[in-house]
């Protein structure tokens, strides 16, 4: 009596539960690369203020034919690092100025999901740069992950930008 009632009804319910708990997320989310976010600033009257820089082109050293940014007007850049490398260097061309920025970092990889596979995260150890138009570069968050976070503040020399 009880068993006849319980069995098929609950079995059906539980099959539903089981099927729904088998999530087949065959889509991998878009942002599956960890990128360094550099926001641009100038100091105006001792106050930090965000700026748009134009025209700016950015590419990785040795990859001039493959521009990350081409004659853009932007207030920040997102830069990819070399996985399993220790340093990555970038060239910023701003108007007539050329700057080099070098990041030194550690790579750590982890398994994101079956569909996304492995993802590299980075821990920035230091940054070095040329100072033709750059005043200073400050690392505010050295953990580079797939999350959209601010990592670096780049201050330009105010007069040279104009």
């Amino acid at each position: 009596m009880i068993k006849l009632f319980l069995n098929p009804f609950i079995a059906f319910l539980l099959i539903m539960v089981m099927v729904s708990s088998c999530q087949t997320n065959s889509q991998c989310e878009n942002s599956t690369e960890s990128l360094v976010k550099i926001n641009f600033y100038v100091m105006e009257d001792d106050l930090e203020s965000a700026v748009f820089v134009e025209p700016i082109s950015v590419y990785g050293l040795g990859h001039k034919d493959s521009l990350l940014y081409e004659n853009d007007s932007i207030s920040y850049v997102l830069l990819p690092l070399m996985p399993n490398g220790e340093t990555s260097e970038f060239v910023f061309e701003i108007g007539s100025y050329t700057e080099n920025i070098l990041f030194t970092y550690k790579t750590s990889t982890y398994f994101e999901s079956k569909d996304c596979g492995f993802i590299a995260n980075y821990e920035i150890e230091s940054v070095s740069y040329s100072s033709n138009i750059i005043d200073t570069v400050i690392i505010i968050n050295n953990e580079i992950t797939v999350e959209d976070e601010d990592h670096v503040k780049l201050f330009f020399i105010n007069n040279n930008l104009k």
Binding site: G60, H63, P80, L81, M82, P83, N84, S88, G117
Partner: peptide, 16 residues
Amino acid sequence: QTDNITYTNYWGTFED
């Protein structure tokens, strides 16, 4: 174990 891991990004393709 995992083998044949490849990462491809702006800088190229890397194995792990």
